[in-house]
Amino acid sequence: MTTPAHAPLPRHDRFDYTPIHRRPDFCWPGGARLAVYVAVNHEHFAFGAGLGARLAPGTEPDVLNHAWREYGNRVGAWRLMALLDQLGLPAAALLNTALYDHCPELVAACVARGDELVAHGHTNADNQSALAPEAEAALLAACRARIAAESGRAPEGWLSPWIAETPRTPDLLAAAGYRYTLNWCHDDQPTRLRTAAGPLWAIPYPQEANDIPAVIARQMTGAQFAELLADQFDEMREQSAHQPLVMGIALHPYLVGQPHRLRPLRRVLARIAAADDVWLTTPGRIAAHMDALAAEGGWPL
């Protein structure tokens, strides 16, 4: 059915339109204008069923692709953590709670290095878009409770597997106690979402500076992805003279943990880590800074 030319389109009503150059100005901690965070997606997949990125076509039981993704948990994640340690970079660990059953040593290593733990569903073999309200609420609560029980602190943030939502997801996230979501990639600044349970921050999460769409969808090489990150950083650093910005970098260990991709990633992350005029941070710290600004009346509701 065609929408009449004079009719407004369906909308979500989570936030209003505001162009980036007409917003309050502020600085990040230390006077920085660009906040940069690294998000490492630690994921576990069912064997013989469910969703998952594919290196090549396969049929279930899909040994080739399942084993390729598992390389991230066994090898890639450890190499990536060593690199982050070497550069002194903080990180957000986006966790499938199935990892507590599959490889708890990996989660413990994320906790030991001080990563912010972000809930990322139970497994990336599933998504929540078809769940009934009660089932979706139970999933959000169970992931938060599992991380709190196993790692000592409930997560403040959420990223849905496959960025899948129902129309109720932001309401359920706020009701469950989450302070921010990474699902919305509509801006380079945080946005305060309206929900039935109060405000929820949408912290910018990249779908361009992200190895899944870059490597899997666009079939970029590791060097091309690193060049993308370098260009993103340079341009956002320059643009941040006009307004404070957030640059996220989304990584999956089974992709960038491969040696031929880790080498160019090492070079670009070293350049970012050496910058003395940016705030190297986590999405939770960004949300906390925005909470403080909102409390002081420095950011619109």
Rank of each mutant, 00 (worst) to 15 (best):
L95Y: 02
V111K: 12
W279K: 09
Q224A: 15
T281D: 10
R237F: 04
V111P: 02
T123S: 15
P199E: 06
G248W: 01
G157S: 06
V107N: 02
A274H: 13
V268W: 04
F45N: 03
G157C: 02
T59M: 13
M290T: 06
A149N: 02
A149V: 10
W158E: 03
A7G: 00
P161K: 05
I147A: 09
A176Q: 08
A32S: 15
F15Q: 08
A223S: 14
P61G: 09
C143M: 10
A270P: 00
A125F: 07
E134R: 13
A112F: 08
A82Q: 12
Q189F: 07
D234G: 06
A214Y: 05
L200N: 03
A274R: 15
D115F: 03
A223P: 11
H44E: 11
A230H: 14
L95G: 06
A148I: 06
R69D: 03
F233K: 07
G198A: 06
D234H: 14
D25Y: 05
E165L: 15
P170I: 11
C103P: 00
D187K: 00
L265K: 09
G198S: 11
H12R: 13
C185M: 14
S151M: 06
T18N: 06
P90A: 08
Q207C: 15
E134C: 01
A164K: 02
A202M: 03
V215H: 11
L131P: 09
R144P: 08
Q189M: 09
V215W: 05
Y37E: 00
H260K: 11
V118P: 00
P204Y: 05
P29T: 12
P24R: 12
W201R: 02
A39K: 03
L172I: 00
R179G: 12
G222S: 10
V40G: 01
H12W: 12
D234W: 07
A130R: 12
L172W: 03
N41E: 00
E165R: 11
A273Y: 12
A49K: 13
Q224V: 11
A93E: 04
C27E: 14
P167W: 05
L245D: 08
R237H: 15
L229I: 13
V118Q: 02
G157W: 00
C110G: 10
A145G: 04
W28M: 01
Y205M: 00
M290Q: 10
I272L: 13
P204C: 05
R267P: 01
R14E: 01
H120F: 09
E296R: 15
L89R: 05
A49V: 13
E156L: 14
C103G: 03
W184R: 11
L139T: 04
I203P: 04
E208K: 12
Y71A: 04
A145Y: 04
W78M: 11
G152W: 01
G88L: 03
S240I: 12
I249V: 15
D62S: 11
G30W: 12
R237S: 05
